[in-house]
């Protein structure tokens, strides 16, 4: 459903007279294909181009060279914009900057209202979306009093109410406590599994990635590695070169294995580790 064909993007800095001062190539010949219903995770160092890539998915940015298609719709064509933005919602890092309305239900209904959905259907969508993120009980509360994780779930509900096919989350857990992080990851995993919504998750927390179908590792504006979490996280040394890491338990298992400890290659979770030890 998402197709990048040799996409290059340059941020161009100009002085007051409009002369080009500098060019920063943030994406450098990216090609990728995301299938409908996939859970994709994107890892990469600061400045590697993750957010720039994300902004191409809902046409906030369009390529300097190459093409991005969202379900066959070229993001460069203006008359596709509305449809593309409705199909692909974005969730950002800071939970406080994404809340607009005074009540949770108004906040979630804001998007559909804006595109002229009839009132009755708005309320149906709001009810559905809040239920899906587990926030129905907070429907008539003020978003300001929610925890960070709850605010992010409201933000996700606001996107769900637009009936998207894809949700792009750019570090949605970076400002959250451990519980909030777990809530958000569980919510998007469930939306992916139960509703078939395509998920693109950008994160710097390696443990959040272990449930993804596929992981892309970005560096210098390009995708350098891609594969299942197990294929990616077995590259313990290579990932460090890309300024990344592996989950702590993966690192522990890796180092034990080097010492001759009998464990299968690339353990991703504590449960896997425990299974490996008990079945030994």
């Amino acid at each position: 459903m998402i197709n990048f064909d040799d996409v290059t993007f340059e941020y161009i800095r100009r002085d007051e007279e409009g002369n080009v001062e500098s060019i920063n190539k943030a994406l450098d010949g990216i090609s990728l294909d995301v299938k409908k219903g996939d859970f994709i995770a994107i890892l990469g160092a600061n400045g590697s181009g993750k957010s720039t890539l994300a902004r191409h998915i809902n046409a906030l940015l369009t390529p300097t060279e190459g093409t991005v298609f969202i379900e066959e719709m070229n993001t460069k064509e203006d008359n596709n914009l509305l449809k593309i933005r409705q199909k692909t919602g974005m969730v950002f890092q800071n939970p406080d900057n994404q809340i607009i309305a005074g009540l949770v239900e108004e906040d979630v209904g804001f998007g559909p209202e804006n595109i002229g959905i009839p009132t009755k259907e708005i309320w149906e969508r709001v009810a559905f979306a809040l239920e899906k993120v587990g926030m129905t009980a907070y429907r008539e509360k003020s978003p300001n009093n929610l925890s960070g994780g709850q605010k992010q779930r409201v933000a996700i509900a606001g996107i769900l109410a637009m009936k998207p096919e894809c949700i792009v989350l750019d570090e949605p857990t970076a400002m959250l406590d451990p519980k909030g992080r777990r809530e958000v990851i569980e919510t998007i995993t469930e939306l992916n599994k139960k509703e078939g919504i395509t998920i693109i998750l950008i994160t710097h927390y390696m443990t959040e990635v272990v449930g993804a179908d596929k992981v892309y590792v970005m560096s210098g504006g390009n995708v350098k590695l891609s594969g299942t979490p197990r294929e990616i996280f077995k590259e313990v040394e290579l990932l460090k070169e890309y300024k990344l890491d592996v989950p702590q338990v993966t690192e522990i298992a890796y180092r034990l294995r080097q010492k001759g400890f009998p464990l299968s290659e690339c353990i991703l979770t504590i449960d896997e580790f425990i299974d490996a030890v008990t079945n030994r």
């Binding site: 451990p178 519980k179 702590q248 504590i270 580790f273």
Partner: peptide
């Protein structure tokens, strides 16, 4: 956990191993 926090992943792992009798 009740207050929304956690313990480090490595601490949880050794705790689970200790529960197994290691």
């Amino acid at each position: 956990r009740k207050t929304g926090l956690e313990i480090p992943e490595c601490t949880e792992l050794v705790g689970r191993l200790a529960d197994l009798g290691l």
